Simulated assay, not measured.
Amino acid sequence: MFTLDLHYITRPSTLKENAPLLIMCHGYGSDENDLFSFASELPEELFIISLRAPYTLQPFGNAWYAINFDANQNKWSDDEQAKESREKIAGFIDYACDQYPVNKESVTLLGFSQGTILSYAVALTYPEKVKNVIALSGYINPNIIPENFESIDYSKLHFYCSHGSADQVIPVEWARKAPKFLEALNIDFKYSEFPVGHGVAPQNFYEFKNWLLNKIQ
């Protein structure tokens, strides 16, 4: 039984039933208000939910999983925490589809940075729960998806992936592995780069907005 333990905020749809659902997953050190700033610019028929990651950071912000540093300043991810957050998001999708007048066949995950890593993981673990993924400034972590992923049916998934070519937080080389990975699984995707750092350029926003418009029709 899934228990709701993720704080979230919503923007209702103009549709009274069967609204396409968009779930936002913010990056490390942020909160549910960050990506929600996009909401007013996105299609009115979308039912938008922005999640707050479960781990509280000091002095402020939240994380989907810990990022640790050793004495040499190498950093590594807590993959067990990441898997727990993956399960929380997957469970939240079911909760939202039961709780709100949305179309469970039209669920989009929109992630940024660590939220993108989790969005990839949820979609590649539970492709039956997700239709579209907007993956901003993140990468695929193979340690938090099923070992048998190559035998899973991903035929209904669509990915929009983008990255800043000058990203100083997550190297663009990590993001560039996604197209080959998705292509090998016959997943429909679009990959774009923009001349920015770890953020979303205006042209990046308009491109993924138009991409999403076509996917929710």
Rank of each mutant, 00 (worst) to 15 (best):
V102G: 01
N103A: 06
K104N: 13
K104Q: 15
E105C: 07
S106T: 14
S106V: 14
S106H: 13
V107G: 08
V107A: 07
L110D: 00
L110Q: 06
L110P: 08
L110F: 08
G111D: 15
S113W: 13
G115M: 12
T116A: 14
I117Y: 10
S119R: 02
S119M: 08
Y120D: 09
Y120R: 10
A121V: 08
A123Y: 03
T125F: 06
Y126Q: 04
Y126L: 07
P127S: 12
K129G: 06
K129C: 09
K129F: 02
V130I: 11
V130E: 03
V130P: 00
K131W: 02
N132M: 00
V133F: 06
V133R: 10
I134Y: 03
S137M: 04
Y139A: 11
N143S: 12
I144Y: 14
I145G: 09
P146I: 08
E147Q: 08
N148I: 10
N148F: 10
N148W: 00
F149R: 12
F149L: 07
D153A: 02
K156F: 09
L157T: 05
F159Q: 07
Y160D: 07
C161Q: 08
C161D: 11
S162Y: 05
G164M: 03
S165I: 15
S165R: 10
A166V: 09
A166Y: 13
A166S: 11
A166N: 13
A166G: 12
D167I: 07
D167W: 03
V169D: 11
V172F: 09
W174S: 15
W174T: 13
A175W: 01
A178C: 11
P179W: 15
K180S: 13
L182Y: 12
E183I: 00
A184I: 02
D188F: 06
F189L: 05
F189K: 00
Y191C: 13
Y191V: 10
S192Y: 02
E193G: 08
P195K: 00
V196I: 14
V196Q: 07
H198I: 06
G199I: 01
G199L: 01
V200R: 02
A201S: 14
P202C: 08
Q203M: 05
Q203R: 04
F205T: 01
E207I: 05
F208C: 11
